[in-house]
């Protein structure tokens, strides 16, 4: 297959950035999108040119490293998939493909297609955990958890932290990301002691990082490779209202 690639090139955070056009030939339809970029980079290197920088690692859709805005969509034209699991057979032969980094104010560009997503880690630091030290846990079967609760918690816990939800959102909101963690822990008995503080603190950090507000368009869930459902956001909203408007029985 043959493609014309319009790729965003930006030397560093200070650079303005611009599109450059490249042609690639003889690409196998079974090559992944990143393998297609590998082929381009091999050629650029042989020509002594600067290869296109992009994030990647596991190349099986779970590490959350890769994230490219392809033809105007986070992770490309398919729903619910990472860039590394997008195959060239999903494109038309001869197609022009526009390739950009994930764009959001809290995700500054480092180089070309690489952005800084550490804001997501700082949201987790505000309470995306259960405070338990190694060594203090009771027997694992001491607390039975209904299977449906465990299964739903699992669905929320599968977030890979790629930031596609932010890139897909017109407001660059990190609501789906934050809600996934809030909902995962809200459904489990172990998550209850810190439930109120968790949702308040994580939402506060999300706002401080400069992520936008959620207007419930659902664009995030369409692109989310982990298929985090929008019910996560509903759960976060309920918890947030509850935590802020009802009195905490344990504080005076």
């Amino acid at each position: 297959m043959h493609f014309t690639l319009r790729i965003w090139r930006q030397k560093n955070a200070q650079d303005q950035g611009h599109f450059e056009t490249y042609e690639v030939h003889d690409i196998s339809p079974d090559a992944s999108f990143l393998e297609m970029l590998d082929v381009l980079n091999e050629r650029l290197l042989k020509e002594g040119k600067d290869p296109v920088a992009f994030d990647h690692d596991c190349r099986e859709g779970i590490c959350g490293s890769c994230g490219i805005f392809i033809n105007g969509r986070a992770h490309g034209p398919l729903r619910n998939i990472t860039t590394c699991r997008l195959y060239m057979r999903h494109f038309q032969d001869g197609e022009t493909i526009t390739i950009e980094p994930f764009r959001a104010k809290p995700f500054p560009v480092i180089k070309d297609l690489v952005v800084d997503r550490s804001a997501l880690d700082r949201i987790i630091q505000r309470g995306g955990y259960i405070s338990v030290n190694a060594g203090s846990a009771p027997d694992a079967n001491a607390i039975p958890i209904p299977k449906p609760a465990a299964d739903r918690a699992f669905d929320y816990a599968t977030c890979i932290g790629c930031g596609a939800c932010v890139a897909a959102c017109k407001n660059a909101s990190a609501m789906l990301f934050t809600a996934a963690k809030v909902s995962h822990l809200a459904l489990l008995p172990q998550g209850q002691p810190e439930r109120r503080e968790r949702v308040k603190q994580m939402v506060m950090q999300m706002d401080m990082e400069g992520f936008g507000h959620c207007s419930n368009t659902g664009a995030c869930a369409v692109e989310c490779p982990a298929k985090i459902p929008l019910t996560a956001i509903a759960q976060l909203q309920r918890d947030y209202i509850w935590a802020n408007l009802t009195p905490d029985p344990y504080t005076r």
Binding site: I130, G135, A140, P144, A150
Partner: peptide, 16 residues
């Protein structure tokens, strides 16, 4: 034990 306490959603049976 520790991982369950951390909230890791391991597979469960219907009894919980």
């Amino acid at each position: 034990d520790h991982c369950v306490a951390q909230g890791i959603p391991f597979a469960r049976e219907y009894g919980g």
